[in-house]
Structure formats: C-alpha cells, structure tokens
Design a binder for these strands. Sequence first.
DNA 1: CATGAATGAGGCTTCATTCAT
DNA 2: GATGAATGAAGCCTCATTCAT
Lengths: 207, 207, 207, 207
Amino acid sequence: MPENLTHREDYRKEKKLRILEAAARVFARRGFFGTVVADIATEAGIGKGTIYEYFDSKEDLFFAVFEWFVRQTGAKTKISISALKGSAPQRLEALSESLMGSWDEIRDIFSLVMEFWSASASSETRERFQQAFRQGYSDFRGIVSSLIRDGIERREFRPDVEAESVAAALVGTWDALLLQAWFDDSFDHRIAAKEFLDVVLRGLSLQ
Amino acid sequence: MPENLTHREDYRKEKKLRILEAAARVFARRGFFGTVVADIATEAGIGKGTIYEYFDSKEDLFFAVFEWFVRQTGAKTKISISALKGSAPQRLEALSESLMGSWDEIRDIFSLVMEFWSASASSETRERFQQAFRQGYSDFRGIVSSLIRDGIERREFRPDVEAESVAAALVGTWDALLLQAWFDDSFDHRIAAKEFLDVVLRGLSLQ
Amino acid sequence: MPENLTHREDYRKEKKLRILEAAARVFARRGFFGTVVADIATEAGIGKGTIYEYFDSKEDLFFAVFEWFVRQTGAKTKISISALKGSAPQRLEALSESLMGSWDEIRDIFSLVMEFWSASASSETRERFQQAFRQGYSDFRGIVSSLIRDGIERREFRPDVEAESVAAALVGTWDALLLQAWFDDSFDHRIAAKEFLDVVLRGLSLQ
Amino acid sequence: MPENLTHREDYRKEKKLRILEAAARVFARRGFFGTVVADIATEAGIGKGTIYEYFDSKEDLFFAVFEWFVRQTGAKTKISISALKGSAPQRLEALSESLMGSWDEIRDIFSLVMEFWSASASSETRERFQQAFRQGYSDFRGIVSSLIRDGIERREFRPDVEAESVAAALVGTWDALLLQAWFDDSFDHRIAAKEFLDVVLRGLSLQ
DNA sequence: CATGAATGAGGCTTCATTCAT
DNA sequence: GATGAATGAAGCCTCATTCAT
C-alpha cells in the first residue's frame, strides 16, 4: 500500500510536471492574460478539467510555474558558481560569461520572466511575486558580494570597495544586458558584458 | 470660426491630456488587464463613453499613454543631460545622481513602465512596444556613449575603452538599480549607484 | 408677423425635407439598425443635434421617411394610372410597363422598402408599418381591381372573373418580379412581366 | 471509443438543433436586431455561454438558422412536387394549393423570412443572403418552368409560351400572396391564388 | 482519475439622446 | 436655431471554473 501510494504520487508528480512545462511554454508565448487555460490543456495533451485536479486556479498554476522556474534557475546558477575556480576576478569573469552564455537557453524563457515581472506589477499576486523577486535578487547579490569580499580578503580587490553595492549593481547590469538582448536582436550582450567587466575589474583592482 | 475651431481643438487636446493622465495613474496602479475602462472614467471624473470620444479603444489609450510617457521622459532626460557641465567623469556622476535622484518621481510611474514591458511581452502590440523600447534604450545608450567618447578624446578616460559597450552596461545598471529599488524598499539604489560608478570611473581612468 | 412665421415655417419645412432625403439615402444604404444617426447628420451636412430639432427620435425619422416615400410613390402611381387611355387590357399593359419601367428609379429605393418590410417584421413599430403596408397594397389592389371590373363591364374581360383576386395576384406578381430583379441582376423582370401579362390577359379575355 | 465519439457527436448535433429551433422562434418573434442572445438561451433553456459553444456569433447562429430553414423548406417542397400526378395544369393547381395550404405552417416562420430579407438588405451578410435567396428562387423557378415545359411538350399548354417568364412570375405571385396574407389577416390568399391560377391556366391553354 | 459540456459574471464598446453653449 | 461633447444603458462575447459522467 505505501508502495502503491508512492506509485500514485510519482504518477501525480510527473503529470504535474508535464502540465507545468506545457504551461510555461504557453505563458511564455502568450503572457498570463493572453493565455487561455484550454490552450495549456491542449499543449499538455490533456483535458481542460484535469488541470484543476492538479492546480487550484490559473493563478496558482502560474505561480507554480514561476516557483519551479526560479528553483531551476537558482539551482543551476548555484551549481555553476560553486564550481568556479581561480582568483576572484577570474571567478567573476567566469560567472559573467556563464550567465551571458546561457542566453540561448534563457532567451526562450525570458518572455516568461517578463510575465512574472508583469504579474508582479499588477494583480493581487503582486506582493507574492515581488517577494520572490526580492529573494532571488537578494540571493544572487549575496553570492556575488561574498565573492567580492573574498577578493578583498585575498587582496585581489581594493579594501575600500563596498562589496554589497558593487554586487547589486553588477547583478543588475547582467540582468539589464540580457533584457536589452531580449528586445534587440542586434545587441551583443556578451561583448558589452565582457568589456564592461574589464572596466569594473580594473576599477576594483588594487592599482 | 478659425478661432472657434482653435478653441474647440484646444479644449479637446486638453481633455485628451486629462484622460491620459488619469489613465496613466490607473494603469500604473492596476496594470493593463487589471484596469477596467470604467475606472479610468471615474478617475478622470467623466463618463465611460467619453473616453471613446477621444480614443479608439482601451489598447489605443494604453499605447497613447505609453507614447506620451516616453516622449515626456525622453524630453526631460535630454534637457537634464544637455545641462551637464565639467569633465566627463563629473558629468557621468551628475547624470547618475540625477537619474537616481529622480526616483521619487519615477517610482510612481515605474509600475507603468512595468506594464509597458508586460504589454511588450504579450499580445500583438508586442512589436510596437518592443520597437519603442529599443528606440528609447538606443537613444540613451547613444547619449552616454558619446559622453564617454568625449572623455576619451579629452584624455580623461583610457583610449582602449569600448564606449558603446560601457554605455550599454551603464544604462542597464541604472535601470536595474531602479528596478531593485522599486520592488525592494530597503534597497538603497543611490548608494549602490554612487559606489559602483566610483569603481567604474576608476576603471575608465587612465591610471 | 404672419409672413415672418410663414417664412420660418417654410424654412423648417425645407430643412425637414433635406433631412428626410438624407435619411432615406442612408437608411437605404445601411438599413435601419445599420444606420447611425450621426451618419444622417453628416449626409445632410448638419449637426447631430439638429435632427432632434425636427424629429423626436430615430424611429420617428424612419417612419417619417417611410410615410414620405409612400406618399410620393402613391401620388406618382395614381397620376400615371389616371393618365392611362384605351381598353382595359391596354391599360393593364401600360400599367405593367410603367411599373416595370420605373425600375431604374425604384431600384435605388428598393433597399429602403426592404427596410420597411423588415421594420414591420420586428420592433414595436411592427403594427404601424404593417398597417401602412396593408393600406398601400389595398389601395393599389383597389385601383387594379376597378380597372379589371371596368374591363368586365366593357365586355373586354370574361364576366366570371374575380376582379379582387386577380388584382391582388397581379399586384403581388409585379412586386415579386421587382424583388427578384432586386437581388438578381441577371433577372429580366420586364420580359417576365410582359410575357406573363400576355398569358393573364389571354386568360381574362372572352375567348 | 468510436462509439463514444459517435455518442458525443450525436449529442452535440441534437443540442445544436435544439438551439437552432429556439433561435428560429426568437428571431421570428423579435427580428435579428431585436433579439438578444440571452433570450435565445432562455428560450432554449440553457445558459448564455452555451450558445457560443455551438455557434461562433449571433450572426453565425442567424445564418445557420437561415440555412437550416432553407434546406428544410427546399426539401419539403421538392418532395411534395415530385409527388404530383396528373396533367400539367393539374399539377400546377396541386402545387399552388399545396403552397397556399401550408400557410398555417409557413405563417409562423414568415416573420423569419422577413428577417432574412431584412438581413440581406443590410450589413456585410447582404451578399451571403442575397445569394441564398437567388439560389432558392432560381431552384423553384426551375422546377415550375420545367413543369410548364412539360405541359407544352404534352400539348397541354400553348407552344409559344415563355416557360421561364411564366414560371418566374408564378413563383413571385405565390410568394407575394403569402406576403399579403402575412400582414393582412383578412386577406384570403387561397381564393386569390385559385382564381388567379384559373385565369393563368386558361391563358396557357391551347384555346 | 479524466473529461469537456455548461455556465454566468464581467468587460469592452456602441450609440441614441440630451443639453449647455 | 444649431451644435457636438457627454453620457450610460445595453448588448455581445470571453473564459475561468464546476461537475456529472
């Protein structure tokens, strides 16, 4: 019986994931308000009613997609960051390149991020989303600032650098460069990131 | 009669502006989809139908707000930039402070910007909005990069600096810092901007 | 003063007629429900509000157009009929040709007739219109049947002919032939009327 | 599963028909523009939204009613005509009586026909309806004219009769007699048709 | 568990009519 | 008298959600 339950749970979990993936695609394509629940069902190859067996509402599903997406992205980022080697500047460069390089993956879901932002700007879920964003940005800022502090301790960066501020700005820069790439195909965010980080690293350096 | 016509036209133009302002407030508060046309009418203190005497549709009104907003912001920015004096680094600092300082004004309309982004992420108006954003970013990038090139020519910045890339990144950074401030009250974007620009200017400097 | 009043009345009467004519054109073009009062004003080259100085409502105007049209058509028909000369068969033929021949004039207002019919099929004015139609048809039937009775008395038609029935049918035939011509350009109602009347006259004749 | 599908399809088809019938009643009662979609739903005993599960729009439903009605009427007429026996004159008399006799059935849907005419006189569907009318009239004309040609061949009618013209006129006469009966209760279309056909048949006869 | 038929609240938009100028 | 700006009732349609099968 426990095994049975487990099987059933596995089944549900897998199905839930299928719906999640389908929903992510449709939301990214059409936006939250532009998306019709029936479309998600069609995309997932199931009946309309089935979605409500797994999620309470369209909004609930939307937020589940959001959380799933954030968790996924966060996990990937943490893994790639923890794998970084070398000096602080080298690690920052590697991080930047990793972020900018994942563009091809990110571009498909950037529309989704825009939707999350949008949802955070309106509707009652505003607070819910804002908090999640706050958290996500904060986590990332923390990682980068600890990396910078590490550099300061190792005497790779100037001691009077405000790690928190620089981290916040850098995170923002990367985000905004991806944004510019998103709505402007001709914009090369990789070069911009590389050149800019060069300047920043020089500014951080002891000399 | 020409005078009469002029009067009428003035009247209509002014009324259109009043509706625009009311719409901007409501759209900022509730988002495009969260906004009900009746709310805009109430906010403007007029009847529902009157809006349709001045705008073809809710979407039309929304885009009109957008264009009006972009035009306004763009004009203000250009004026404040043209007024900048001093060396290139000084001008960049002044620009940064000016942007970050206008936060109190901007914060009220940032929600509106989010809405425009949102609208650009979905629906058929996507292209319309994306292009406007592209243009806006591109304009601003151009201003900042010419400022940097100016600095290079004046030997205030290193000659091997990629003005375009740095400009794109800086513009993005400011944008993203405002964004972080927008959804995180405890985040001090002014300090972050100041500290970060310090680093960047040091990185740009000849030494 | 009486002269003054007369002038004013003349002015009003003429203006009313201008509105009537404009309304007839627009109603014929777009139908009652498809017509927007503003269009009539534009067509008449006046302001929207002015119409309500001369007519109580859109429906009132519509009915006024109808009555004006019926009066006009009726008057014309009576005149042309009273001018008919010759034997009863000859007068029927002349009448038929006159009716069918006025097609080029009628075709432009047939849409209007359709609208009147339509209005009679729906809305509260149903009864109003139905009665007018009844009256119009009845008048015309009366004219034709008296013409036929005249023929019977003159021994040009068989004595056992039911004048009323034949008149009703003939009137209907002409009406329906014009209708067919109206929605089928390739249909030649003149030939059909002529050939058919030939048969009918032969059927009415003593031999 | 195929059986299941068939069941579902049957169910939908039947439901669609129920809506069609309800819509026909309401449209006949109130006209196209006078009809509110909610009324149809009430008449059909279903919810407003359900109608849109089966028809794309009010106009679509209206045209579906029209087609259904035309198909039904056409089918009935063809059947009754093919069942006619006897000489050509006898068959024409039988046809006339059959048409005039079905008045009690027709009267309830004549309002509907008026609505179709109305719809054909306005809006973009004009062409759609006009063509259907053209077709219907043309079909009927064809049937009657072949009946007449048959009579000519059998030497029951004069050889110089223009079958097409007479057919067109006869069809029109019947139509118009029903029309007169529709808006004038006191008008006896049966007698008029009988008496008139007498005259026409006499006119068609060899003597 | 899965489904899709049914629903009705709610939103955008139209337009006849009014009325201040 | 003439005008057109203003209005709000009313209608079509969408779509998230429910629920019987």
